[in-house]
Nucleic acid binder design. Structure first.
Length: 824
RNA sequence: GGGAAGGUGGCGAAAUGGUAGACGCAGCGGACUUAAAAUCCGCCGGGGUAACACCCGUGUGGGUUCGAAUCCCAUCCUUCCUACCA
């Protein structure tokens, strides 16, 4: 038989099928109201130098899932595009003198070629490139609409600045304990600048509440919840003895009576005003020192506390206590009001500070034993104890005390209920040229003037004057910079900051449905960025897939953006992506993160040349659970190649069937069980176990190959079904085999196979017999055997009898078709 | 300090209350071959046995249950996120 077996040579047919699918328009997009739609979206790539095997890891399972939905009868939309603005292009321009536009489009060409090699069902007819003016004019249009709605604003504030990238960053792009730039890992510094921001904090509560509705992984929802950082409490006004108000935020209004001092952040605006003359030198040098200190050291909780007394006092509004005002860098200007009331009796940090500087410690909540004993350590419990030393609140149980105190604060105008968020407004200004220009003009006469809708897009200049210093080239490009004020027609200058590229990716899922809508026409305020009918059909996204690294960046921004679009009347839903699956990361063969410097990067071109696309796809899906990631192991890719070879062998077998009788019933059972298993696994993104199930069925077919089963109707049904089940994973091989079996219409236009539940039931079943829960025997019996017979069979087994010996059977547990447990 | 995900053979893993290790890699043995590659067949957690039996085994210690990798409590370790957050 060996001589009739042919070799599986994917290189001989993969390219052919890719061309055929394009010719046949197999993956062209059509809105079809008669079929249910399924919008499957995978995070769009940034076209850096080359496609990485990490892209394959993210994208091929997404494609498999999309293909599966399509075979189930959905009209599937699986678009692709390029997130094409960003610093690498600009850096290449500065370093090598290449035009960032040329650099980017050249990379995109290469990406397209490599993406086509995946054999994925991309909707190329709806491709989007975010650096095309036809795309970014809509980003500018959104900006203008948000400006009108007071959701975009300009503010002079302290911002994070990356000295290496020469630009400001959003809070979300500052990472780690040392507060480094997300891109280049340089620690950021603080700068005071006038910057554009989006009012994402306005949606904080809704962004929190919406998470409950989403079929997203817990980890992402938790990360967003923590990032938004909602805490309930009260804002209370303390006053200096001179009468200046100092607002503090506290989550423990029930401990107000225990405030024995106050602490301001060194950057607090009141600091200059309240310094007593005797303390001026000390305070000023402390503030100067704090400004010098890197955030990383300030942020380090291990560091022992430092601080300085201002010489001023404030009055505690609830009991009139005179409390000293200190300055210390453990209070951060960026959270709450930048000032705190310190309650050392009930807060560890305040206690540490009080001890170090000899400040009063007062207990206003009774301890666990009900005593108001000596202060050993801070007593932070919010559930045990009762208020004391707190005027008429004495005796109030601490559980539930806070709302009562807040109500009283409001009645007496000493404070008010307040919710504080960790979330900051989204800073979108970037001092870089390779981005979407912010459509604003600055005029000496008229001030800040938005570019009129009909003048959009504000396009980037063809030629730019790149500076080796990395300074924004737009500042040095007069053709861009110098303009005319839309309002007074006088000379004016354009905003040279561009938008954070997360702006582009906040709405790309909408851009895909109708790319570059209103080509060439002047825009108006009332235009729509995509045809509402097309949008109505496809939106929102049904299934999103991508890495978890975007949990508090892109995934938060795009949710915010959708809520804005809803409030602008552009979409009629609240959430952009209903389901989200986060794949893991593929690492190098050494288990380390793939990177050029480590030399462990796998080039997809090379492995595809060696093994073919289908093998690479299959290998990536077989590594392990998709959300877990794992190392690239060059040896294990052989396993998938062998599997596909064996399928090829089985599927191309002709004649040569042997004399032995195969078990048809067993094969039929396995066939239907496999359909069920693969269907169920694909529903849950369990690609690895789905492939294992396909391997099992194929192994059974290998065993049946030399029997008389080969060539029977059942055999042919099994091979055809294998083609269908394999099609989403291995689109080329299954198409090749399908066509060799004389099917005329593409395997990818077939329906997903159904299984027959009756056929999955086995005729004969192995029953486990346990004595005291330990397996002592197995019995092969016919399915559905009644309990008494099962029990009888179990007792009759010699090994079971040996274990029963002369013991008394106390209890018998029988699980039909599964096991008998004898308790003695 | 707070949170999330994990911990199972030599390795990637499977099993979500019912035969632990499916499927695959590596390894070992065999067939084919002058030989090798490829391909095919078989074995493959540890101890134990001539072979069975039997004993041990899912990070660790308890618990629930006829029965636990799976559920509960405690604890250790790994990875990630977050953090003087008031």
């Amino acid at each position: 038989m060996n001589e009739v077996r042919s070799q599986y040579r994917p290189q001989e047919f993969e390219a052919k099928w890719q061309e055929t699918w394009v010719e046949q328009g197999l993956y062209d997009t059509r809105e079809d109201p008669d079929r249910p739609k399924w919008y499957a979206l995978t995070m769009l790539p940034y076209p850096s130098g080359e496609l990485h095997v990490g892209h394959w890891y993210a994208m091929t399972p997404s494609d498999t899932a999309a293909r599966y939905k399509r075979m189930q009868g959905y009209n599937v939309f699986f678009p692709i595009g390029f997130d094409a603005f960003g610093l690498p292009a600009e850096n290449a321009a500065i370093k090598h003198g290449v035009d960032p536009r040329k650099w980017t489009y050249r990379n995109i060409d290469n990406f397209r070629r490599q993406l086509r090699q995946m054999g994925a069902m991309w909707a190329w007819d709806r491709e989007v490139v975010t650096c095309d003016p036809g795309y970014y004019k809509w980003s500018q249009w959104f900006f203008l609409r948000m400006l009108e709605a007071d959701l975009a604003y300009r503010e002079y504030a302290t911002v994070d600045w990356c000295p290496s990238c020469n630009t400001t960053l959003a809070r979300e792009q500052v990472w780690g304990e040392d507060r480094h730039c997300e891109r280049c890992e340089t620690p950021v510094i603080k700068r005071d600048l006038e910057q554009w921001k989006f009012r994402i904090t306005k949606y904080a509560d809704e962004l929190l509440a919406g998470l409950k509705e989403l079929e997203w992984a817990n980890s992402v929802r938790t990360m967003q919840t923590n990032w938004i950082g909602r805490s309930e409490g009260a804002q209370v006004t303390f006053r200096t003895e001179a009468g200046d108000p100092i607002e503090v935020f506290t989550t423990r209004p029930d401990t107000l009576w225990g405030a024995t001092f106050m602490v301001l952040a060194p950057e607090h605006p009141l600091v200059g005003k309240i310094i007593g003359d005797d303390n001026r030198t000390a305070v000023e040098s402390y503030v100067a020192q704090a400004a010098q200190l890197a955030e990383e050291e300030r942020g380090n909780a291990e560091k022992s506390k430092t601080g300085v007394f201002t010489g001023s006092y404030a009055v505690n509004p609830v009991n009139g206590d005179r409390v000293p005002i200190w300055i210390a860098d453990y209070v951060m200007m960026g959270y709450g009001t930048g000032a705190i009331m310190a309650v050392p009796g009930h807060d560890d940090r305040d206690l540490e500070f009080a001890r170090k500087f000899g400040l009063d410690v007062k207990r206003v909540i009774t301890g666990p034993d009900g005593a108001v004993g000596p202060i050993g350590e801070a007593w932070p419990s919010q559930t045990e104890g009762a208020m004391c030393n707190s005027g008429h609140f004495d005796g109030t149980p601490v559980a539930g005390a806070a709302p009562k105190v807040v109500a009283w604060l409001e009645e007496t105008s000493k404070g008010k209920s307040h919710v504080n968020y960790r979330l900051h407004d989204w800073l979108i200004s970037r001092q870089r040229m390779w981005g979407t220009p912010i459509p604003i003009v600055y005029c000496l006469a008229c001030g800040t003037v938005p570019v009129p809708y009909e003048d959009l897009p504000v396009t980037l200049p063809e030629e730019t004057n790149m500076k080796a210093s990395g300074e924004n080239a737009l500042l040095h490009t007069p053709s861009f910079l110098e303009t005319i004020c839309p309002s007074c027609k006088g000379a004016a200058k354009r905003e040279t900051d561009t938008m954070d590229t997360f702006m582009c990716s906040s709405w790309y899922q909408y851009g895909y449905v109708d790319p570059y809508c209103k080509k060439g026409e002047p825009l108006t305020r009332d235009d729509r960025p995509w045809d509402p009918e097309i949008g109505q059909y496809w939106l929102p996204v049904d299934q999103y897939t991508g890495g978890i690294e975007h949990a508090t960046m892109h995934l938060l921004y795009t949710r915010f953006f959708t809520k804005v679009l809803r409030d602008l009347g552009i979409v009629d839903f609240d959430e952009p992506m209903l389901r989200l699956f986060n794949q893991g990361m593929i690492s190098g063969a050494d288990g380390e993160k793939m990177s050029k410097s480590r030399g462990n990067v796998v080039d997809p071109d090379e492995v595809v040349a060696a093994f073919g696309t289908d093998v690479v796809r299959g290998y990536l899906m077989f590594i392990g659970p998709w959300d877990q990631g794992g190392p690239w192991d060059p040896k294990r890719i052989e396993g998938i190649r062998r599997f596909l070879q064996r399928f090829w062998t089985v599927a191309n077998a002709k004649d040569g069937a042997g004399e032995t009788v195969g078990d048809a019933r067993e094969l039929e059972q396995k066939l239907h069980a496999t359909i069920q298993k693969v269907t169920d696994d694909l529903d849950h993104f369990h690609f690895n176990t789905a492939i294992a199930a396909l391997m099992e069925l194929n192994n059974d077919l290998m065993r049946a190959l030399p029997t008389r089963l080969q060539g029977t109707d059942l055999w042919n049904e099994a091979i055809d079904t294998m083609c269908l089940l394999m099609a989403p994973f291995f689109p080329h091989l299954s198409e090749e085999v399908w066509s060799r079996r004389n099917h005329e219409v593409s395997v990818h236009l077939q329906s997903w196979p159904d299984f027959d539940a009756d056929k999955i039931l086995k005729d004969r079943i192995n029953i486990v017999v346990q004595v005291n829960g330990k397996v002592r025997a197995t019995l092969e019996v016919e399915a559905g055997l009644a309990e008494p017979q099962l029990q009888e069979g179990a007792l009759a087994h010699p090994n079971v009898q040996a274990h029963l010996a002369d013991k008394q059977i106390r209890k018998v547990i029988v699980v039909p078709d599964k096991l008998v447990n004898l308790v003695v």
